[in-house]
C-alpha cells in the first residue's frame, strides 16, 4: 500500500487529476454560492425587485428567480457528475492501474 501511494504521488497524472478536479469542484461551488447568496441578498435588500410583477399579471420576478435557483442546483450537480464519472474516473482508473 505504501509503495502504491508513493507511485501515485509521483505519477504526473495524479497531479493532473487533483488539479483539474479541484479547480472544477471549486468553480462550481463558487457558482452555487454566488447564485444562492445572490438570492438571499435579494430577499434581504431587494424585496422591491422580487415583488415586481412580470408584465401585466400578478406573477412576480421572485417566482422565476426562485425557480432558477432550484433548477441551477440540479444542473450544476449534473455538470459535475457527468465530468467526474467520465473523464475523472477514467484518469483515476489509469492512475490506480499504473500504481500496481
Amino acid at each position: 500500500m505504501k509503495e502504491n501511494a508513493q507511485r501515485i504521488l509521483a505519477n504526473p497524472k495524479f497531479q493532473e487529476l487533483v488539479q483539474k478536479r479541484s479547480a472544477f469542484a471549486w468553480t462550481l461551488s463558487i457558482a452555487m454560492l454566488v447564485i444562492y447568496y445572490g438570492f438571499v441578498l435579494l430577499v434581504a435588500f431587494g424585496k422591491g425587485f422580487l415583488g415586481t410583477p412580470i408584465g401585466s399579471g400578478v406573477t412576480t420576478w421572485g417566482i422565476p428567480v426562485g425557480l432558477f435557483t432550484i433548477v441551477s442546483a440540479f444542473i450544476l450537480t449534473g455538470i459535475y457528475v457527468n465530468r467526474a464519472n467520465g473523464e475523472f474516473d477514467e484518469l483515476n482508473r489509469q492512475i490506480m492501474e499504473e500504481s500496481k
Binding site: 462550481l28 461551488s29 452555487m32 444562492y36 442546483a73 450537480t77 459535475y80
Partner: peptide, 9 residues
C-alpha cells in the same frame, strides 16, 4: 436544496 451541490463538489 442548495447544500446538496456543495456536498457533491
Amino acid at each position: 436544496l442548495v447544500g446538496w451541490p456543495i456536498i457533491l463538489f
